[in-house]
Every structure is written in structure tokens, then in C-alpha cells.
């Protein structure tokens, strides 16, 4: 393998990883944009989605059906959490919501641990997805290709929704000026629900794809994707939709290249580098790539 094709291989792996982070980051970013709240339970919603999809997979359902059931599971979970826990706190200070989301995160982890087991699980293998896919010297699997295609489709659909529909516009308006949006007749609680619906559905997509790619699922599997989705959102500028996508891709590429080119002894600390990046971004440009610095009027 030449140096150049090795570079291309890392690039491809990084993009695949980046799209997964982007899918997770979008939901976090959108919720933050409207409620100014970091939803720490976002990763657990992803995890619950994929755990609800596992029985469907065990019945021998095709991968696309497993994906849909994962999306449905995550969406239901997200809406339930929003309705039962965040909605009554809508008028509380932001920190209350933040702490509540930490609580939900722990609750869901332990609930799933109680109801299932700490044993790693995986969706029933889909032979087609595991087959290799070659472009020149780059080797991926079909599942990687599926990740790229599905992630682009889901991101594009979200973009079109936000840009061209009545509710999408209302969602963006809400993020810019909530009380002005109310004056236009926008129903805030309903739109918050829509926002959680979209974010959770995208997390569900990411969850099932992660399941097929890595095949090692435990009740704690939502934690790391959730945190990395958060880092992706911060890099891009939390609250910004394109920011979350670009932030996810940057993070995926950065992580893959660091692991690929650093000596083995250093490469094993991949998660540490991700958080180093987070700290650097927060120090140098806390508003991220697409974010606007917040100003407080005195």
C-alpha cells in the first residue's frame, strides 16, 4: 500500500466516522439552539433506539426494517423523555434542564442494564453489509457505504425541512428569537416536540448504523457517541445545523488521522485527543465555526 493510498484509506474511514458523529451532533445542536440546554441523555436515546431494534433484527428482519424500527424506538424514547421530564421544566433555569438530562442519562443506562444484561449484543449479521467494497486500493465494507448514503439522505431531508417548510422556518425562528416567534403565533411547546422528534430520529439512525458497523452493543454504548456528538456540535458552533454536520466530519477525520499516523503507543488514547480538541476549541473559539458569539446586554 502506497503512502498516498493509505492517506485515502484514512480519509474514507474518517468520513464514515464523521457522518456518524454528525448524525448525533445535529440533534444536540438543534435542542441547544432552542432551549439553550445540553441534552446529556441524547446518547442514551440512541442506545435505547438500537436496543429496541435488536429484537426486530433477531426475528430475521432485513437491515432497512431494523433501521426503521431503531428510528421509531429512539423517536418514541426521545418524545417520551421530552414530554414527561423536559416539558414540565420548560420555564425553569437552563441548569435545571441540564441536570435533569444527566439524570435521564443515568436512568436510561441503568434501566436497560436491569431489563437486559451487561453482555454485549449485536444485530443479527447482515451478510450483504459485511461484504467488502473496493474503490481502487481503498477497502471499505458495504455498511460504511450505507452509513454515508443514509447519513447524507437524512441530513439533506432535515435541511430541506428546516429551509422550506412552515414548521422548519418556525423552528429556525424560535432559535433566533423565541418571544418574537411567539408573536407570530408559533406554538412553542409543539415546536420543541418537533425538535426532539428530529434529533431523536437522527440519533436512532446513527445507533442502528453503529450497531451494524461495530456490532458491540451494551447499555453504556450511547455514552461515547453522545459525548462525541457533543464535541462535533461544539466544533461547528453549538446551535448551528450546518455546524454540527461540518463539526462531525472534522472530528471524524481528525480522530482517524491521529490514530492512523501516531505511533501505536500514543494512538490508543483516541478519546483523549477528541476531548483535547474540545478543550482547544473552547479556549480558542468557543462559539465554534458557524456559531455567533453570545453577547450579554447590561
Amino acid at each position: 500500500m502506497t503512502v498516498f493510498s493509505e492517506f485515502l484509506q484514512h480519509m474514507a474511514n474518517g468520513l464514515v466516522l464523521g457522518f456518524l458523529y454528525a448524525l448525533v451532533g445535529i440533534g444536540l445542536s438543534m435542542v441547544y439552539g432552542i432551549l439553550r440546554m445540553i441534552n446529556f441523555a441524547h446518547g442514551e436515546i440512541l442506545m435505547v433506539g438500537v436496543f429496541l431494534a435488536l429484537p426486530v433484527s433477531a426475528l430475521g428482519a432485513p437491515a432497512w426494517l431494523v433501521l426503521l424500527s431503531g428510528v421509531a424506538g429512539a423517536t418514541l424514547m426521545g418524545l417520551l423523555v421530552q414530554w414527561a421530564i423536559y416539558r414540565p421544566l420548560l420555564k425553569s433555569p437552563e441548569v435545571t434542564l441540564l441536570v435533569a438530562s444527566l439524570g435521564v442519562s443515568l436512568l436510561l443506562q441503568n434501566l436497560v442494564l436491569m431489563l437486559t444484561s451487561p453482555q454485549p449484543k449485536r444485530p443479527d449479521p447482515a451478510p450483504f453489509l459485511d461484504q467488502p467494497f473496493r474503490v481502487g486500493e481503498i477497502v471499505l465494507r458495504n455498511v460504511d457505504l450505507a452509513i454515508i448514503v443514509v447519513a447524507i439522505a437524512a441530513t439533506l431531508a432535515t435541511h430541506l425541512f428546516l429551509k422550506h417548510t412552515r414548521h422548519g422556518r418556525a423552528l429556525r425562528a424560535l432559535a433566533q428569537d423565541m418571544s418574537a416567534a411567539r408573536m407570530m403565533g408559533v406554538n412553542v411547546p409543539f415546536m420543541v416536540m418537533i425538535c426532539f422528534l428530529i434529533g431523536s430520529a437522527l440519533a436512532g439512525v446513527a445507533g442502528v448504523l453503529i450497531g451494524y458497523k461495530y456490532g458491540h452493543l451494551t447499555p453504556l454504548s450511547g455514552f461515547v457517541p453522545g459525548l462525541k456528538g457533543f464535541v462535533a456540535a461544539v466544533i461547528g458552533g453549538i446551535g448551528s445545523f450546518p455546524g454540527a454536520v461540518v463539526g462531525g466530519l472534522i472530528l471524524g477525520l481528525l480522530e482517524t488521522f491521529l490514530v492512523g499516523y501516531l505511533p501505536d503507543a500514543l494512538a490508543q488514547y483516541r478519546d483523549a485527543y477528541v476531548f483535547l480538541v474540545l478543550i482547544l476549541v473552547l479556549l480558542v473559539k468557543p462559539s465554534g465555526l458557524f456559531g455567533k458569539p453570545e453577547t450579554v446586554k447590561v
Binding site: R166, R169, A170, R172, A173, Q176, D177, S179, A180, A181, M183, M184, G185, V186
Partner: peptide
């Protein structure tokens, strides 16, 4: 319908999008 003090436009939306938001209840 209220037209608030200080205009309160949605700054990152176009003129047309701002107007369309005014018609949020019209389908």
C-alpha cells in the same frame, strides 16, 4: 397581531422568510 418594539426581525433569515413566518397560521 403584534409588531414589537425594536422590530425583532429574525436576523439570520431573509426578508421573504421573515414575512412567511408572519403567515405561520396560514396554510
Amino acid at each position: 397581531v403584534m409588531c414589537p418594539e425594536g422590530r425583532r426581525l429574525f436576523p439570520e433569515m431573509s426578508v421573504q422568510e421573515n414575512l412567511l413566518l408572519g403567515a405561520y397560521n396560514v396554510t
